[in-house]
């Protein structure tokens, strides 16, 4: 009796350790595959040149168009979603009372927006662009990606903001600060948390293909205006992988390495910032 109980526990414990190991090795497997395929294709030309002879068939050049395009796109989206998210989070935490129903409704709606898939943001962005008479363009992509990353930013910034002890707002209010003046100082204190939120949002936004598929378009050139189409890294992978030409496929693999490295850097810096933040607090 006791033996079978022990055996059961040991059995499940082994299963648990196996599943932990499986998950870890999958990660290594994915990163390994990407590096194995992409590193040989990665050279200086790849990151410094535009694709020659068309991105789908041309054998020359690199993916500079996608790198620059993604950078432009994500910067624009971060600016837009920051200007909305920061006031929103400060508002629901410091302007609204602590147990405000309005605040919980807003939080709830962002929980749901967080779950809305990127293809829906893409479709909505596209519908919006048709409505406004726009063509696939950098601006369209920026708007769609801004919508996609706003819930991420709001949720993760809100999470750290909620943990802020009441001491600081109280201290500021008792000095006779208005709510607005108070929020500005609090924002300074929350900076590491905000940076973490931005890094998370950038990671999600820069890698998402479904949102930019019909909103930002694709081009061999560098985007030079908001109303021109812009290439992006995820689409550079997606489109060029389907090409029959090996050199073009290599460009896709190289883009995959670049994107993965960006994600790794973002993820680790987000971790660094959030741990630094919690150290300050405890």
């Amino acid at each position: 009796m006791i033996n079978t109980k022990r055996q059961e526990e040991i059995f499940f414990k082994i299963l648990m350790i196996i599943s932990i190991c499986v998950i870890m090795s999958i990660l290594l497997f994915i990163i390994g595959t990407v590096l194995y395929k992409g590193l040989p294709a990665l050279d200086w030309d790849m990151v410094s040149k535009l694709p020659g002879g068309g991105f789908y068939l041309g054998k020359e050049g690199g993916v500079l168009n996608a790198i620059i395009g993604s950078l432009y796109l994500i910067s624009g989206s971060v600016v837009i979603s920051l200007t909305l998210s920061v006031p929103l989070v400060l508002f629901i935490n410091f302007y609204l009372p602590k147990k405000s129903v309005f605040a919980s409704i807003i939080r709830f709606s962002f929980d749901i927006l967080f779950g809305v898939p990127s293809i829906v943001y893409g479709a909505f962005g596209f519908a919006l662009m048709i409505f406004l008479g726009m063509r696939a363009s950098l601006l369209g992509g920026i708007i769609a990606v801004a919508l996609l990353i706003m819930p991420i930013m709001v949720r993760s910034f809100d999470e750290v903001t909620r943990l802020l002890p009441r001491d600081l707002p109280d201290a500021l209010l008792s000095l006779g600060a208005t709510k607005y003046e108070m929020s500005k100082v609090i924002l300074r204190q929350l900076m590491p948390g905000l940076v973490t939120a931005i890094l998370l949002a950038v990671g999600r936004g820069i890698g998402d293909a479904a949102t930019v598929l019909f909103t930002a378009g694709y081009t061999d050139n560098l985007p030079n205006a908001l109303n021109h189409p812009a290439a992006t890294l995820p689409l550079s992978i997606f489109f060029q992988l389907g090409s029959p030409v090996e050199e073009v496929q290599n460009r896709a693999y190289a883009s995959a390495v670049i994107l993965t490295v960006i994600i790794l850097i973002l993820s680790f810096s987000a971790r660094y910032f959030s741990s630094k933040y919690s150290k300050n607090k405890i």
Binding site: D167, L168, D170, A171, L172, L173, S174, L175, G176, A177, T178, V185, R188, Q189
Partner: peptide, 20 residues
């Protein structure tokens, strides 16, 4: 309320320096 609070200096239980 700002005028009221300006009249009262509050010293809290735990010191809470502003982040500056």
């Amino acid at each position: 309320v700002i005028d009221v609070r300006k009249k009262m200096g509050l010293l809290a239980q735990r010191p809470c320096p502003l982040p500056m």
